[in-house]
Write a protein that binds this DNA or RNA. Structure first.
Lengths: 320, 320
DNA sequence: CTGAAAGCGCTAACAC
DNA sequence: GTGTTAGCGCTTTCAG
């Protein structure tokens, strides 16, 4: 049986309440403090958050729900969130929805059953209907998706604008057969990037729906898709890739095919870190503000728990 | 206030115990079953796992502790674990240690305070001393590291053997200036791979410590390190890369430098998936049995919770 | 098959 | 500053 506050009381000869008070930062006599500390170390006491949470109605835990654990972009954001949250005394529970609405619901229930104080969600679908219905009373921050719910906070990036910028770069380089490689799943983020791409090309009369290719949003997906694209459209001279992993897959394919990027073909893709030194020369990359997304998500959810109103933040991705 | 079992009792006119029984799969009169279901949906009842866990001493949750959330290998394993665990009625809480022993300890405490029924850990350091001391009473499975603890289960891969195999392939291809690119942090897995590499080369009299390069275990790390290697040792004709992300970084660098893999230089690296179609031709890759690792970890931890003894599993990585 | 009552470990009043 | 007590929501005897 685990060691409880009662054991500490017995060990020290003090009452439960005193121990509890000390554990919560209330001052106690200094010699009692010493006794308590000793007992804690001797017995290896670890506070039972279940009992504590049951009483206080707080778990000091934030639930995080992302589509896939193996998506670097998502997990990088989660890492940043955790970094900030730990300084504020919160821990995290991470769940994945596997791009499946019912799993997402199930995960939400799981998180709520764990009494999370707040939720940070990167939803499967673009509307957030399904979310809000489950988590009525739990503060929620939605990242990278615009939902219809207005008791949730939102953190968005200027996907459409930066995509337009990306395609313009390719045009400026003299490219005019510009393809799009994006993910199959029709989600908000990909959609916005697609619209940005499309809008610029339509303005120039260069848009061709046949040059829009979808694949699975991983390295393999990018690899396969770019090969297919170049087989079916060898005239392609510029490619905009909307997902990081797919972008990597594309570059690997280029390498294997012996195509020198910046000569036959120009690329614009997504990069994960501000500090990345790769992709300098011949490639343009969109730098996602992952750190800012994570920081904002963490700070906003804590603010909401402390009673503040939901708010929305628009973050700038940069291209260079 | 959240809706409780009491509210269900009031709504249905039944007693708490009956509701609880139904929720736990005990048969109740079919018309009561209907009433309860209706009340659950109407009120949006979600069971409070804190209260339940406090009573039953079970949280139906496994704590998972990995060095970094943004490492694809780790998160892929976590995904597999989650997949299996959910079929057995367990959820997961994921923490990261950020390669820091004290954070690892802190995370363990966090997980234990959440009353996890078991722990699956990919430890920071190679000895597991620090682990067992914290989690004395919690079943634990350690993955990819051999620790001295024998009340923990272990899941290992044949790192050394497969590394030997990898280097032999390079030698068979006629390479004899074979470099190693590995990560800085001296962890068990890298160590084993290093020993495998070294042993084969020493046997042939080809070992040269100056051709062993360390870098950060991410894409940037691989990119930077291989460039440095080739600058300082332009005679290199074969490279063994011990980490997936670094391997990707290497290939990206090759691409940028216009070096065709399989001609000037041969590579052997780590790949993440069994099904990957990349890296076919000129590259050899070690396929890590990530799915098996995850499945085994999940099954073993549940078995331990059910009272079985710890056990160790050795899994085969394959090269092709 | 169902209801009443006790108690899991902790905190929050409240007396001392 | 410290001890006593009640109760968070649930499960679990034990009667009925």
């Amino acid at each position: 049986m685990a060691v409880t506050i009662k054991d500490l009381a017995k060990e020290t000869g003090l009452g439960c309440a005193t121990i509890s008070a000390y554990l919560n930062g209330v001052p106690v006599r200094s010699y009692n403090k010493v006794k308590i500390e000793e007992a804690i170390n001797k017995l290896g006491y670890i506070r039972n958050e279940y009992a504590r949470g049951l009483k206080t109605r707080k778990s000091h835990t934030i639930g995080i729900l992302i589509p896939e654990l193996k998506n670097i972009i998502s997990t990088t954001i989660v890492g940043e969130i955790e970094e900030v949250l730990r300084t504020k005394g919160y821990g995290i529970i991470v769940c994945e929805s596997r791009m499946d609405i019912s799993r997402q619901q199930e995960a939400m229930r799981f998180l709520i059953s764990k009494m999370v104080d707040g939720l940070i969600v990167l939803p499967v679908s673009s509307d957030g209907e399904d979310l809000q219905s489950v988590a009525e009373n739990v503060p929620m921050t939605v990242i990278c998706r615009q939902t219809s719910s207005d008791n949730a906070s939102h953190i968005l990036i200027n996907n459409r604008e930066v995509s337009q910028e990306a395609v313009k770069r390719l045009i400026d380089k003299g490219r005019n057969r510009i393809a799009l490689i994006t993910d199959d799943s029709q989600v908000y983020m990909s959609g916005e990037r697609y619209f940005g791409y499309r809008q610029v090309l339509e303005e120039k009369g260069l848009f061709n729906q046949k040059m829009v290719y979808g694949g699975s949003s991983d390295i393999d997906g990018g690899y396969i898709t770019v090969k297919k694209l170049l087989r079916e459209h060898p005239e392609t001279d510029g490619i905009f890739v909307t997902h990081y992993e797919m972008f990597i897959g594309c570059i690997l394919a280029m390498s294997e095919m012996g195509i020198k990027i910046g000569e036959e073909i120009d690329f614009v893709g997504i990069d994960t870190a501000d500090k990345s030194i790769i992709f300098d020369s011949a490639l343009h990359t969109i730098k996602l503000p992952l750190k800012e997304i994570g920081e904002n998500a963490a700070e906003i959810i804590v603010a909401m728990i402390d009673g503040e109103h939901p708010r929305s933040v628009l973050l700038d991705a940069k291209i260079d």
